[in-house]
Amino acid sequence: MVDELLSFSLLCLSSIIIIINPLGATLTYISLTGNLEKKTKDQIIREACTISLAILVIVGIAGTIILQIFGITLEAFRIAGGILLFGIGMEMVYAKTSRTKLTATEKYESQDNEDVAVMPLAIPMIAGPGAITTTIVLTNEASEISPYAGIFIFISIGISIAITYFMMRNAEYIMRKVGQRQYRVINRLLGMLLIAIAVQFVITGIKLAFPLTGAS
């Protein structure tokens, strides 16, 4: 049981941090707030992180209920989520900004809008479809492991948002140290890890949906 909880906690932390992608969120934050005053920037950071944290916590609490309302099985959602994460991972490998996180239209419309904390930073850049899907899948998986396993999901969400907040607050320093080339290398590595997690989601979903396949 201890080993299973440890493995699950590492899965939660790695998958949520990768899908939120604090470095990518920081780059987007810089591109959207370059002409704003420091006080306004700080407010945007606080609001974006608070809103995204609230969204993911609510999803983590009500994830099972959401699936039940729409009559969606965990297996179907896990497979669909794995396919979504696979697509995001592929775009990260090819050093592209995922369209599920930030579309060109959203980025263009936000250029002249000082209130970018909610859209597009909190949604969909930080608490996007990938993060929401991952949280729901992990929440349902936690219920099958232990009553205490769900705690690791919320801890992982808190750590991921805290890292994002820290990186945004120190965005200028980070950008002096991390150039576009370094960012692409890091992004590709994280993309490969995300693809592996996505494939595991799909494999697990298929095993649970089709137990007669004989997969153990």
Results as ranks from 00 to 15, higher is better:
Met1Ala: 14
Val2Arg: 15
Val2Pro: 12
Leu5Ile: 14
Phe8Ile: 04
Cys12Tyr: 01
Leu13Gln: 01
Ser14Tyr: 01
Ile16Arg: 02
Ile17Asn: 08
Ile18Arg: 04
Asn21Asp: 11
Leu23Gln: 01
Leu23Lys: 02
Ala25Trp: 08
Tyr29Ala: 07
Ile30Arg: 08
Leu32Met: 09
Gly34Tyr: 15
Glu37Arg: 15
Glu37Val: 15
Glu37Lys: 15
Lys38Gly: 09
Lys39Ser: 15
Lys41Ile: 04
Ile45Leu: 03
Arg46Phe: 07
Glu47Ile: 14
Glu47Val: 14
Cys49His: 02
Thr50Ile: 11
Thr50Val: 12
Ile55Cys: 07
Leu56Ser: 00
Val57Pro: 03
Ile58Tyr: 00
Gly60His: 00
Ile61Thr: 00
Ala62Tyr: 10
Ala62Arg: 06
Thr64Met: 05
Ile65Gly: 10
Ile65Asp: 14
Ile66Phe: 05
Gln68Arg: 10
Phe70Asn: 07
Gly71Ile: 09
Thr73Leu: 07
Leu74Ile: 14
Ala76Phe: 13
Phe77Glu: 13
Arg78Ala: 08
Arg78Pro: 10
Leu85Ser: 05
Gly87Ala: 12
Ile88His: 05
Met90His: 07
Met92Gln: 00
Ala95Cys: 09
Ser98Glu: 01
Leu102Thr: 07
Ala104Tyr: 12
Ala104Gln: 14
Glu106Thr: 12
Glu109Thr: 11
Asp112Ser: 13
Asp115Asn: 15
Val116Met: 11
Ala117Ile: 12
Met119Lys: 13
Pro120Lys: 06
Pro120Trp: 08
Ala122Phe: 07
Pro124Leu: 07
Met125Val: 13
Met125Tyr: 03
Gly128Asp: 05
Ala131Glu: 03
Asn140Leu: 04
Ala142Glu: 00
Tyr148Trp: 13
Ala149Arg: 03
Gly150Pro: 02
Ile159Leu: 01
Ile161Gly: 01
Ile161Val: 13
Thr164Gly: 00
Met168Gly: 01
Tyr173Val: 06
Arg176Glu: 06
Arg176Asp: 03
Arg176Ser: 10
Lys177Leu: 05
Val178Phe: 00
Val178Met: 01
Gln180Phe: 08
Gln180Pro: 11
Arg181His: 12
Gln182Val: 07
Gln182Ile: 02
Arg184Glu: 06
Arg184Phe: 05
Val185Trp: 06
Asn187Cys: 07
Asn187Arg: 06
Arg188Tyr: 08
Gly191Leu: 02
Leu194Cys: 10
Ile197Val: 13
Ile203Val: 14
Ile206Trp: 15
Gly214Ser: 10
Ala215Met: 10
Ala215Trp: 15
